[in-house]
């Protein structure tokens, strides 16, 4: 229970369904006694209090589990390392994989519980994960990394509901968080300034900005962590492109620290090679599927070839701004077939 409206209503529904429910709030920050900054963050004193208040109203036991060290090792440090390597990670997905449905789930199973219930918007029935009923809130993408074993011990009671319905239900149940704003961005970067967060953790490692087509050196930069594929602003190039059109980051070479830039159409990719697959669908080649490459948007028709060490994805329509490190989740209609981490694009 993060202290937000979704997990509170999820707990309420699990209890109503007759389960023996215990609320757990994860202390993920090294400094848990800090106040919330803006609407962001998920482990401040206020969020902990909100979660506790909801548990009290629902009349369920409530505990704070200290997962700060695991979170730092399994989510924050890999996040920084990925950026330092010129890749674009998704820490929420990593948190689901390593914390909520690994560290928390394992401890819960050991203590005699059967499942972890969260307020994610996704549908899960008979081990099959599907997109949520609310298309604006669908979070099946950040759950696509879960294995069959993890899904067998997961419950997402909000999957069939619209967010507006969840808020109304929270108000009806007397939960103080009914009107609490949604959290955004990354919980461990409460300022929302990822660049600032990274620059304090990664040493400057200068490199060159080069034109992807000609190979000409256009300028220098302070470190690859300052760039994401698809980025347009903050390139620090004083001269415009010869044709006067904006330039975008097309690729990042971590070893040479060379950042390639070029015109927007060069951002289009039609094939993805991947690693670390999780697959629930049939083996071999599957066609007529869709893929999603980021939490919001980035959806395209595709055909996928499934191997043990990765998925080869051929896109039926180009996707723009796809970065190595992002996850690709494969859907058959609204059903999640699996996921993998993007290693390279073409």
């Amino acid at each position: 229970m993060s202290g937000g409206v979704d997990s509170a209503v999820a707990a309420a529904r699990a209890k109503d369904a007759g389960h023996d429910v215990v609320g757990v709030h994860l202390a993920l920050s090294a400094k848990p006694a800090t106040m919330r900054e803006g609407a962001r963050g998920c482990c401040s004193v206020e969020d902990s209090r909100d979660a506790r208040r909801c548990a009290d109203v629902l009349d369920i036991p409530f505990y704070v589990w200290d997962m700060a060290e695991r979170f730092r090792e399994d989510v924050v440090e890999p996040f920084v390392a990925e950026y330092a390597a010129g890749r674009t990670p998704n820490p929420c997905l990593r948190c689901n994989e390593k914390i909520k449905f690994s560290a928390v789930l394992d401890r819960a199973l050991g203590l005699g519980f059967d499942a972890v219930v969260t307020g994610h918007y996704a549908r899960l029935h008979d081990g099959v994960l599907r997109r949520a009923a609310d298309p604006d809130k669908d979070q099946s993408y950040v759950l696509g990394v879960l294995t069959a074993d993890q899904l067998a011990h997961a419950m997402f009671p909000l999957g069939d509901s619209l967010k507006s319905v969840v808020r109304a239900e929270a108000a009806r149940r007397g939960l103080v968080v009914a009107e609490k704003p949604d959290s955004h961005d990354i919980c461990f970067i409460p300022s929302g300034d990822t660049q600032d967060f990274l620059s304090s953790r990664i040493d400057e490692a200068p490199g060159e900005l080069v034109d992807a087509a000609s190979g000409a050196v256009l300028g220098r930069h302070g470190g690859v962590q300052n760039f994401t594929v698809g980025q347009r602003h903050g390139l620090g190039l004083s001269r415009p492109a010869p044709d006067g059109r904006p330039r975008y980051v097309l690729g990042i070479e971590p070893v040479s620290r060379r950042v390639q830039v070029g015109p927007v159409e060069s951002l289009d990719v039609v094939a993805l090679s991947t690693e670390a697959p999780v697959w629930h669908g049939p083996r071999g080649s599957v066609s007529d599927v869709t893929v999603q490459v980021r939490a919001h948007g980035g959806v395209a028709p595709a055909a996928v070839e499934v191997r043990d060490d990765g998925l080869s994805v051929a896109l039926g329509a180009p996707l723009r701004g796809v970065a190595p490190g992002q996850a690709v989740v494969v859907y058959d209609g609204d059903r999640v077939l699996g996921s993998a981490t993007i290693a390279a694009t073409s």
């Binding site: 695991r70 390593k98 560290a103 199973l109 050991g110 203590l111 005699g112």
Partner: peptide, 17 residues
Amino acid sequence: ERARGASTRAARTAERV
């Protein structure tokens, strides 16, 4: 007994990851 089981299990995950 149960608390020991939970600790052992948690330690196994930590190794696995």
